[in-house]
């Protein structure tokens, strides 16, 4: 079971869809990929779509928090969407639920980053 990272762009929003399992092993891959994409200097905002993420542990919290810090430094916004209940529990437990903005679907998350559809 690995992790797949699918990347799309809308204006200055980087849309990242994760599917599979996000743990310590696969978090490294996500971090490198997103650092690469963000270093291109195209995007200031980030939407993380977790709809097809079937497993996550504290390593996932770490990598999401790390990208939030990176995006905040760029002066951008980060929105997380389509989080499954089991993963939602982890965000709640860590208090990150209050830090990031969560949305039901990708369109709403993109709009929250200031891009009209």
């Amino acid at each position: 079971m690995g992790l797949y990272v699918d990347v799309a762009r809308r204006r200055n929003v980087l849309i990242v869809r994760l599917s599979g399992e996000l743990d310590h092993h696969t978090a490294t891959q996500v971090r490198h990929r997103l650092e690469d994409e963000l270093s291109k200097g195209i995007d200031t905002n980030l939407v993380l779509n977790l709809e097809n993420l079937t497993f996550m542990d504290s390593s996932g919290l770490g990598v999401v928090l790390g990208r939030y810090r990176q995006i905040s430094q760029l002066g951008g916004r980060m929105a997380v969407c389509s989080v499954q209940p089991s993963i939602h529990r982890l965000f709640e437990m860590s208090g990150l639920f209050k830090v990031f903005s969560f949305f039901e679907d990708e369109e709403r998350a993109i709009r929250a980053c200031g891009v009209a559809s």
């Binding site: 971090r31 504290s58 390593s59 770490g62 990598v63 928090l65 982890l90 437990m93 860590s94």
Partner: peptide
């Protein structure tokens, strides 16, 4: 909760808290 000895590795310090929950 939130204690980590390795913040430079992007750890959140939530492992033990998750186990306890």
């Amino acid at each position: 909760p939130l204690y980590t000895s390795k913040p430079e590795l992007e750890r959140s310090g939530m492992g033990f808290t998750i186990m306890e929950n």
